[in-house]
């Protein structure tokens, strides 16, 4: 219930008008949105029980490793409700397959659709979504971690919350099933990071400082 309360309201995209190139306009709009989402994500992380008690260096490591996974849980969740084949980055930024292909995000599109299909089939509840998001951060396998015991306790707290929740619904197998979706989430996030790095390095798409710093940490 704490995670449900601290879940930030979805952001809206600010449409970029700086260029006539419609693909570039979409990318600039998307990168601006992601940059602002990152800011919100960092504020959100501090409110997850146990996170602020970690060493500052470990907080940084977890965020640097797990930020894209946490953001993609949100995208996949928002896209569930939308029928059709769109990725819902924001209520006013929905990209279909053709748009993703035109903007160099075909690979990301395919990976995210795969993840979404998995989540959709599982019919995730809001409680599960917010816990999965926090677990993606806690379980990001940051290396090195200065205080592994504290990180372990942080993970245990979230795991226990998930198990308690599923027990209350008499869904004994559900926690394990959710944990088994984490590898696909990791894989999808890696592809997303590669896609944005490629756009920046090879196609010179300008990227805001915070987003670039977080992408570079994963490069």
């Amino acid at each position: 219930s704490h995670l449900l309360l601290t879940e930030p309201a979805p952001l809206a995209a600010n449409q970029d008008n700086s260029t006539n190139d419609s693909s570039l306009r979409i990318l600039l709009t998307l990168c601006d949105l992601l940059n602002r989402e990152l800011l919100v994500l960092i504020g959100w992380a501090k409110q997850i029980p146990g996170f602020s008690g970690l060493l500052l260096v470990d907080q940084m490591s977890l965020l640097q490793s797990g930020w894209m996974e946490a953001l993609l849980v949100g995208v996949a969740w928002r896209s569930q409700g939308a029928g059709g084949d769109e990725l819902v980055f924001a209520g006013n930024l929905r990209l279909d397959e053709a748009q993703c292909r035109a903007t160099g995000l075909a690979d990301l599109y395919e990976a995210l659709r795969h993840l979404m299909a998995k989540y959709r089939a599982m019919k995730l509840s809001p409680e599960e979504v917010v816990t999965l998001k926090a677990m993606a951060l806690a379980n990001s396998d940051a290396d090195p971690v200065d205080c592994p015991d504290s990180v372990q306790r942080f993970q245990d707290g979230l795991h226990e919350a998930l198990q308690d929740y599923e027990s209350s619904r008499r869904e004994q197998r559900r926690a394990g099933r959710l944990l088994m979706t984490l590898p696909l989430l990791r894989q999808t996030a890696d592809r997303a990071v590669q896609a944005f790095l490629r756009l920046h390095r090879h196609h010179r798409v300008p990227i805001h400082k915070l987003l670039l710093e977080m992408l570079d940490a994963k490069a």
């Binding site: 960092i42 501090k46 500052l56 710093e213 570079d216």
Partner: peptide
């Protein structure tokens, strides 16, 4: 750490 100065600063802010 110099490379990750924005994240560092954001985490240090209390709010």
């Amino acid at each position: 750490k110099e490379k990750h100065k924005i994240l560092h600063r954001l985490l240090q802010n209390s709010t």
